[in-house]
Simulated assay, not measured.
Amino acid sequence: MQLPDEIFTEVTKLCASADELVKLERLDEAKTNYIEALKLLPADRNEWEAATWIYVSIGDIHFKKESFDKCFKCFFNAVQCPTGLGNPYIHLRLGQMYFETENFDKAADELTRAYVGGGLDILLEDNPKYLDFLESRIKI
């Protein structure tokens, strides 16, 4: 399904603005824009692909702020949206979040999913501690 043009345009503007705010480390303002974009989606938000990336963006903000409970909720929602399940980046971030909260079995599972779906490169983009951890659990 495609969003109506007027909604798509407004969602795109809000998300682009939020992306710029993230680059400037103005995370709370960025989160506000992402939430406003999410609110513009029609009922049953989780049926729209745009919701996937908005939840990911909000989740990334919570990850940067080490608010792992909120991060989990966002990425859990993202997995429920179109193209969410099996998305290597979403599984990477879930794995990192589980690692940071010392839920190592789930961290290994999610990081493995990220590795299988995205290859070694996805694990090389972030802190090497996640790759080191995964190498202690599986043969890479």
Rank of each mutant, 00 (worst) to 15 (best):
E36H: 12
Y130M: 05
Y55A: 01
V79I: 15
V22N: 03
D126Y: 09
T101R: 10
A114F: 01
F72K: 11
A50M: 09
H62K: 02
L21S: 01
L123G: 14
T9D: 10
K31M: 15
N46V: 11
G59N: 05
I140T: 07
L24G: 03
L21P: 03
F72I: 12
R93L: 03
S136Y: 08
P82D: 05
I35F: 13
L134W: 03
N127D: 15
V22Q: 06
W48G: 06
S136L: 13
I58T: 03
E47R: 11
E125D: 09
Y34H: 10
E25Y: 08
F76C: 15
Y115F: 15
Q80F: 14
L94T: 10
R45E: 04
E49N: 08
C71A: 14
M1Y: 15
G59E: 00
N103A: 05
L92G: 07
F8G: 01
I35C: 09
A43T: 05
G84L: 08
D121T: 13
I58P: 00
G117Q: 01
K23V: 05
N33M: 10
L111K: 06
D126S: 10
L38G: 02
R137I: 15
D126M: 02
L85Q: 04
V11C: 08
D19M: 12
D5Y: 07
